[in-house]
Amino acid sequence: MLQLSNINKSYRLGQLEQQALFDVSLQVVEAELVGLCGPSGSGKSTLLNICGLLDQQFDGQVYFSGEQVTGPQQAMRLRRSQLGFVFQRFNLVPVMSAFENVEYPLQLNRIATPQRKQRVNELLEAVGMLEHAGKRPDRLSGGQQQRIALARAMVLKPRLVIADEPTASLDSQTAHQVVSLMKQLSHQHGTSIVVATHDDRMSSHCDRIIRMEDGRVVSDKEALCVA
């Protein structure tokens, strides 16, 4: 479903050029929950950005559903229709209600209003937030906001969800609930999830763990991640 081949990525810091990824190749299949682990500076966020088609400035090839991603317009179109995102700080739009936040990707894809409403209600119910649909993010707890963010990421039934430290800002009980929910939704919708994490609670739920160090994939297997 997602294939990365021979990815090299470097950043320029003043006169210095810092290589962030060295010849990274990987493949993510349908409905797989992949954990991306590694210490700070190992390149997992850089790799996550490339997996999420957020960054096109690299050497190598990215294929999404067999289609090579070659430009920002194509990447934008795929992000809009095939990808979902969950962020560490939730990143909900503060002037939108929970309902509107979840509805936003459907609006972007011009889904008709009745279907939109139905789909948003389904997702809010699935994450247990239907009763909070009218509330703005500032009236929700961190865990509730992350549930809304998860619903927003899943509302389009995307093929891939990119999650960047989704449990880092949550207490252990809430984190457990969010991780379970992610896994449940992933299996329900056949959605693949690539999640960058330091959190053992998260990685223990992953089907596969990719460990990174110094911009290289050092292991790729079903194993508990120790960050």
Binding site: M76, R77, R79, S81, L83, F87, N91, L108, R152
Partner: peptide
């Protein structure tokens, strides 16, 4: 800025 980045990540075009 972060909100702009979030919306762009979700596929919102610069024009939108």
């Amino acid at each position: 800025t972060r909100e702009i980045g979030t919306l762009a990540a979700m596929g919102t075009s610069p024009a939108e």
